[in-house]
Design a protein around this nucleic acid. Sequence first.
DNA 1: CATGTTAGCAAGTCTAGGTA
DNA 2: TACCTAGACTTGCTAACATG
Length: 283
Amino acid sequence: MDNAQQQLIWLYLDNLQVQVTEMGHKQVWPDWRDLDYTPDYNKFYLICDGEGWLKIGDKEYAPKPGQLFLMPQGVKQSYSYTDGPRFTKYWCHFTAKVGENNLFNLLKVPVFLESGLEGEPKRLFRELLSCQSGTSLTAPLLVKAAMMKLIAYYVEHAATDVAGVEPAAVSKPLQAVIEYIHLNYYRNLTIDELAERAHLHPNYFIRVFKRHFGTSPIQYVNRKRIEEVKWLLTSTNLLLAEIGANVGIPDISYLSKLFKSSTGLSPIAYRLAHHPAPPLNHR
DNA sequence: CATGTTAGCAAGTCTAGGTA
DNA sequence: TACCTAGACTTGCTAACATG
């Protein structure tokens, strides 16, 4: 995977919105069967025991214990019992959106992983179930956090799988814009300039960008800049004005305001809070 | 359905003036 | 001198509508 692809995947994951609707751990009912339906949510199955049959798109599978299956939203699928002992599995239904898109339309990942029976996914499913049934004030947040960890596990391990992970090819012009931003964020980028690279009208470009990535172009550029500012504040001795010039925000009054709205601290307060040791001299 | 336009509001930028 | 803040001005963003 090249650097541009990795940046794109980070951007998707950074803007991911997750919602978990249902989950459980049980042996499937004797009549566990449905054919050719298209769910408006994603599903994870962690097979613990037994056997059964799945069809995702036009491919058929006979899942084995220890395999973690992903059934993506919007893809026609079927499931059924077989003659053997019925499945016992952990399962959950969830949406994972970046802007208006399902994450798994934006990322090409394999349909299942060999995760083993006693690995991280089982621990995360247990965490999901205990958070959901708990009465904690922050239960919804904890459920979401566990779900995100499960998605992270899947993407991380899919990347080392033979099939690998890569951004879907639907977004070539936008991919070019992302690359351009990463090469030029330290300059004074304008919407017109970015829109031109995508061959779109500026106003329409903003809409397409946000629909695709879940964030507006300028917000994305500024987030990238603020990350760089944080790094420069804590790893160098540079003055705020010099840092601003390095990241494309030469106006330190604006830099100050932007930084504070993003981190809750003014730049120098941030430097003091994160910088107990004498700074490196990079001037 | 993809793309463009417009208007109103939100966010970004600039200027001036303050504090330590 | 370096940094921060308030307020005025400019540009970006979004929703609603138009066009082909």
